[in-house]
Design a protein around this nucleic acid. Sequence first.
DNA 1: TATATATTTGCCAATATTTGTCAAGACATA
DNA 2: TATGTCTTGACAAATATTGGCAAATATATA
Lengths: 80, 80
Amino acid sequence: MLLRQLASKLDLDTSIISKVERGDRQLKKEQIPLLAEILNADKEELLMLWLADQVYSVIEGEPMADEALKSVSKKLKKAK
Amino acid sequence: MLLRQLASKLDLDTSIISKVERGDRQLKKEQIPLLAEILNADKEELLMLWLADQVYSVIEGEPMADEALKSVSKKLKKAK
DNA sequence: TATATATTTGCCAATATTTGTCAAGACATA
DNA sequence: TATGTCTTGACAAATATTGGCAAATATATA
C-alpha cells in the first residue's frame, strides 16, 4: 500500500505517515483503531504496541529506566 | 519544613508544592536533583521514582498496561 | 537519460498540554 | 477574631505536539 493511500484513509498528509514509519513521529491514540482496521491487524495488539512506544519514549536513555519499570510493575499489581 | 520554605527553595509557588504533595501535579525533571538536595535524599532514587511516575501516568487505566510494560522491558534489554 | 511517481525532510502555523501565578477560601490555633 | 498555613480553581505564559506545505531526494519506468 502506498503512503498516500494510507494517508488518505487516516486523513493525514503522506509526510506524517512517512515520519511515523521511520519512527520520527507517533500517531495519536485515536488513530490506532482506524489503522488496525485498514491494515487488518489486531486492535488490542496495535494499541499495546503504541502504548509501549509511549512508555519507551519516556524512559529512553534514562539510566534508571529498568528500576523505574520494575517500580511501575509493582505499583500496577497493587492497584489491581 | 513548611511548604513556603520548600517552595522558595525550588523557586515555585506554594500552591504547586501543595499540588505535588497531593499528587495533582508532577515536578519538572530539572527540579528533582534540587529537591533531593533540599530533602537530603538520594538523587538517583528520587529521579527513579519521578521516572516511574511519568511511566505510570502513561499507562494508568490502560487495559494493556502490563503487556506494554513487558514489551518495553524486552526492548530495553535488546537496546543495551 | 528523461519523466513521472513516491518518499523524505525541514520549516511553519494551529492546537493542545504543561507549568506557574494569583486570589479566594478552608482549616487550625492563639 | 486575627494570624499563619495549606488548598483550590481560574487564568496566563511557556512548551510540546500535531498536521500541512513545499522543496529535496529517491525510485521506477518509458
